[in-house]
Amino acid sequence: MAVEHPVTVPSGDQTRIHNIGYRTYDGPRLGRSYATRSLYSQSLRGAYGLGRSVKSKVLPMLLFVVMCVPAAIMVAVAVATKAKDLPVDYTRYAIIMQAVISLYVASQAPQSVSRDLRFKTVPLYFSRPIETADYVRAKYAALASAMFILTAAPLIVLYVGALLAKLDFADQTKGFGQGLVSVALLSLLFAGIGLVIASVTPRRGFGIAAVIAVMTISYGAVSTLQAIADAQGSSSAVPWIGLFSPVTLIDGLQSAFLGANSAFPGAVGPSNGEGVVYVLAVLGLIAACYGLLMRRYKKVGL
């Protein structure tokens, strides 16, 4: 229908507004939930630079490749050496690659929300049928989904590779399932923290730096303190210290409930009782991030 007719477009004449006959729209208007879904899909595509400039695609795509290549190499090694097990557990993979994941969330959370603030696109969204809550949910869901794609893709590579290498099916499927639950929680937690930080600043560079700082400094501080506690012989303090950084939270949670080997010093993860605290802390943080975002956008309006 919307065929272009170059005849109506005299080149070089940009100063006149031509009447080309207005057509009204009598078709369906799909309303609020459709608009929210549109914002979700646009934000999800945007998180990988799709629909944006070539420059915006470089970093997310590069990080995606960096996430998947080690998994592919591990699979190749496992197949070639006919190993009995994969070199790395499904649950461990994201912990090893945490720097890449942190970098991704640091680059894409500001892309998702700081841009709308900086270029004042937010008021345009709120002049549409969506409400504040819809905007927050769509943005949160989109970044969490993008991170899930980033973290689950290498697990799929590992799983497919493991099956090709004819490793034990039940064992691998169980590990794969545990890995997926773990990275789902990780995606929600990281996306929430990233968005809360990014939504405070309209400056993208500042947002990137702040997210990286929060992720790496908290992890650095926590793992150093854990190492000191372990060296001092007070290993019972190690799991409690682990509550204070996003990466160690996920690590502790999955070693308590998802059969992972802890990356904590001494490889001693939290006990089941302590694990419950970890679960509560993770869920509480996710809820708090959502609540903070809602509060933030109540103020941003028109």
């Binding site: 208007r29 609020r32 459709y34 549109s38 646009q42 549409r128 049928p129």
Partner: peptide
């Protein structure tokens, strides 16, 4: 994008 945000298919 803004048209879709207004509910247009």
């Amino acid at each position: 994008h803004m048209a879709r945000m207004s509910g247009l298919p």
